[in-house]
Amino acid sequence: MTAPLLQVDNLHVHFPISGGGLLGAGRRTLYAVNGISFELAKGECLSIVGESGCGKSTTALSILGLQAPSEGAIRYRGLPLSGPGAPGRMQRARAVQMVFQDPYASLNPRQSVKTSLAAPLRLHGITAKSEISDRIEVMLANVGLTPEQASRYPHEFSGGQRQRIGIARALILEPEIVVLDEPVSALDVSIRAQIINLLLDLQEKLGLSYLMISHDLSVVEHMSNRVLVMFAGQVVEEGPWQQIFTSPAHPYTRRLIAAIPDPYAAMNRGERPERFTDVALPAGRDFLFEVGTAPDVFAAPAPSELIEIAVDHRVRLALT
């Protein structure tokens, strides 16, 4: 059996928070990510959904190597991406790249498009001028920009075009995995469709694997193969997108989906009908926490486990 493309195994990220007291008095630990495990297969789009503070961004930063895990392992094709024996930043850069949320902050205002695309190539040992400009031209065409636009600066582009440049920069080193951090939530509604279509086209054309971080469930449903729902630094439910959206088992997942204001539901002059199919839980088991209560991020979470309730569909239940 071959190793999965990306494997995250029991990832923990904890931050020490100084309490402001002298000599470390009042020091506490913030439990941002508590034992996340998942695999990403070649060519799939896996989405991590959850609300602010659930640990989804911290998980992404750990995979990108921008945040050291406190515990656990991240493997790329069976090789560790974190901890001792991890590859340098250069190898990691060719494996995982990221598309950022805010297209206005994610481009250096003092670098032309060409410079910000050429610099990583040069850094990774591609020095021939003709090859650099060829690859930039191909990449710009891939994201729907013209070669003439390469000499321009970020402020000369619209939000949608900037996001295209951000995608081009993420793909220029030809990574296999691309982390999409809320890739369309900062864009105008009419531009979102274009970027979503572009991302799906590129995924198919280049065989990319996406790990998408998002709170926008309609985008998640449209793009994902599998979905992880996070709450308080833990996965509370995971499964194929069909399962998550038609028969969500965890009350938090249901709440999240029901909270999306749907313009078409409003046409029926009323609330959306409860359209989830019920899921049978194993006898005697219950969910971990009351839905609607804010998690205490300064306490280690109560013991619990992910239970498979259907094929590839798992939900977190309290440990009996």
Binding site: L64, G65, L66, G88, R89, M90, R92, A93, R94, V96, Q97, M98, F100, S106, A119, P120, L123, H124, G166, R169, A170, L173
Partner: peptide, 8 residues
Amino acid sequence: QAAQTLGY
């Protein structure tokens, strides 16, 4: 952050 992920 992008520069960090690009290996700078």
